[in-house]
Design a protein around this nucleic acid. Structure first.
Ligand SMILES: [Mn+2]
Ligand SMILES: [Mn+2]
Ligand SMILES: [Zn+2]
Ligand SMILES: [Zn+2]
Lengths: 137, 137
DNA sequence: TCATTTACGCAACAAAGTTGCATAAATATT
DNA sequence: AATATTTATGCAACTTTGTTGCGTAAATGA
């Protein structure tokens, strides 16, 4: 979907910074951390603004956070196939390559339901797989 | 297991700092982040030393990292029941409470095997569950 | 075009994490 | 037990990551 459409759909003002961030995501098809975006948009979008854009995007459901075992969280576009799969729930898995450190959404793999020990009420599931990606194989 | 035994078993020198860190873990039974340990051991162990202790412990298999969706990773003792379950693999799940932000190992729940899309060679699995813990229920 | 609302950029700060190096402490050797 | 060797610690200095306040600019609505 086009950046401008995404913004309208999520009730967000159409600003240059936001559009550029969305373009960056759409051209990579992998999860991006703040510092990667900052680098890509150096001189175009301020560092602090970038933090605020990411926060807003997450709050509005444009992006989702992916927990990371290294320096900082990453973000990926929510529901790539939003037109088709309208009731997209974000309980899909993520894969992180130990070689190149890139993280991908595995959209077509839903985390199975599991019986969890007593006393815990589970509302979210994050499955992060580690290994070697196609490129690095 | 006693701190000193753990250190010997993992081929680590028996130092005051390391012992205190292990004591801290054994008295809490939850995952701890660097800043929590730093606070608990203020004046006892230097901040930088603490980073190095955690790194060493992870490398030697005393602790394991738990990815987090917030500010920094957490650590938990590996294989609580190492004496019994000797071939402990760290593919157990973790639970993080959205109320108190505490993270626990769910040692008795092993992540099931799953068929992953082509091209990815999976060697590690991190399942982070979110929700409400017993105390906060 | 003008008013209003919201986002942006900048400065200043706080928190998290790293590196180098001299000294202290732990282990190994005699 | 004393000494040599190895390894860990503490401190300073620095980088990176994330936050807050505020005046200005840009986006939207009238
Ligand atoms: Mn995803
Ligand atoms: Mn664990
Ligand atoms: Zn790779
Ligand atoms: Zn709780």
């Amino acid at each position: 979907m086009k950046p401008e459409q995404i913004l309208i759909q999520h009730d967000l003002r159409k600003t240059q910074g936001r559009i550029m961030v969305l373009q960056e995501f759409s051209k990579h098809d992998k999860a991006l951390a703040h510092n990667e975006l900052q680098h890509a948009l150096a001189g175009k979008v301020d560092r602090v603004t970038l933090y605020r854009i990411l926060d807003q995007f997450e709050k509005k459901g444009v992006l989702h956070k992916i927990p990371d075992d290294e320096v900082s969280v990453k973000y990926a576009l929510c529901a790539h196939n939003h037109e088709i799969d309208h009731q997209h729930s974000d309980d899909h898995a993520h894969f992180k390559c130990n070689d190149c450190s890139e993280t991908f959404c595995i959209d077509d793999f839903t985390i199975p339901n599991m019986k969890i020990p007593e006393g815990f009420k589970v509302t979210e599931k994050f499955l992060l797989l580690g290994g070697v990606c196609k490129k690095c194989a």
